[in-house]
């Protein structure tokens, strides 16, 4: 039981919080701009490398430098939206999807050119686990990831339901034409969507990068589980995407627990396939997700 909590349940929540933060952006972009943003994973990597570059200049705790990564990711997102996505907005969305594939490639190759393609480890290697009641051994990073995500979820919920900008974002997600004729500034909404999506992606990327190591494919490898989470939560439902992220993270980790007999239920080498299978099954049977999202 203790083993189950220490090695499966808690890591499941930790990776789940990475997926949750990434999926919020994907879900909001899909809901407001109407396209699946395939460069979102690489936007995370941009954020991670931003933090990494900052730690080289200022050798302090990487958590203090997360804003640098967020700023870099926000700048990158706004730049590619302006230069690459906006000119295609009048065309069928599939062109923007293809364009975002290209943007993913541009981000990744820029990172490889500037940062090199080797793995990079933040700070000192070994961090002692937190030991509670002599039985629970928790990695402090996992605790930080889950708490941060919970705080962000609350703040985001308040922002979306109380602030003027947040409410216009929900209006545009519900019905873009109606929102525009009601006089909402859709360009401002689009800008805020990128800012929030990119900032959360950078935070998620830093947690993923600190947990193992940072490498140029970090974000791309996380992309499909994040899509799965966004669809599971219902497109255009940020809180649903959060819940979806935790469900996908837990499903991945718990699938390799030895539920029956001695061996793992599903071999850990197929762990990532669990998210893909969930995603494909959802797309076929319940594309609107668990929380009644939109079907675009």
């Amino acid at each position: 039981m203790i083993e189950f909590i220490n090695f499966y349940l808690v890591p499941g929540f930790a990776i789940g919080s990475v997926y949750a933060l990434g999926a919020v952006g994907i879900s909001m972009i899909f809901g407001i701009l109407r396209f699946a943003h395939f460069a979102h994973g690489d936007l995370m990597t941009v954020g991670v490398y931003g933090v990494f570059a900052a730690t080289v200049v200022f050798p302090v705790n990487p958590f203090l430098l997360v804003p640098v990564g967020m700023a870099l990711a926000i700048f990158a997102a706004l730049f590619v939206d302006k230069v690459f996505y906006q000119p295609l907005r009048k065309l069928p969305t599939i062109y923007t999807v293809i364009s975002s594939f290209g943007v993913a490639l541009i981000f990744r190759s820029l990172i490889q050119i500037i940062g090199g393609s080797e793995n990079r480890v933040f700070g000192s290697g070994i961090r002692p686990p937190l030991i509670l009641f002599d039985t629970f051994r928790l990695s402090s990073l996992h605790v930080q990831a889950v708490t941060t995500t919970a705080v962000i979820a609350v703040v985001l919920h308040i922002f979306l339901s109380k602030s003027m900008t947040g409410r216009s974002m929900r209006a545009v997600a519900d019905d873009p034409e109606l929102a525009q004729i009601s006089g909402l500034d859709t360009e401002k909404v689009v800008r805020w969507t990128w800012i929030i999506g990119a900032a959360l992606a950078a935070i998620a990327g830093v947690f993923a990068g600190l947990d193992t190591s940072a490498h140029p494919n970090l974000g791309w490898n996380l992309l499909l589980p994040m899509f799965a989470a966004a669809i599971l939560g219902g497109i255009g439902k940020p809180m649903g995407a959060m819940a979806g992220g935790f469900i996908i993270g837990l499903a991945e980790e718990l699938s390799s627990y030895h539920w029956i007999g001695e061996s793992a239920l599903i071999s850990p080498s197929y762990k990532t396939a669990v998210a893909f299978v969930i995603m494909i099954a959802l797309l076929i049977f319940k594309p609107q997700g668990l929380f009644k999202g939109r079907l675009l």
Binding site: F30, F35, A36, F38, P92, T93, I94, V97, L224, F227, I231, S267, S269, Y270, T272, A273, F276, V277, M279, I280, L283, I284, P287, L296
Partner: peptide, 28 residues
Amino acid sequence: KICIRLKSDYLAMASIGIAEILRLVIVN
């Protein structure tokens, strides 16, 4: 047979997912 009813964006995700599953099968 399974995925064709999906709209293009979703079909893109599903086809990448399937390619990844095929790759995992080949590696493992």
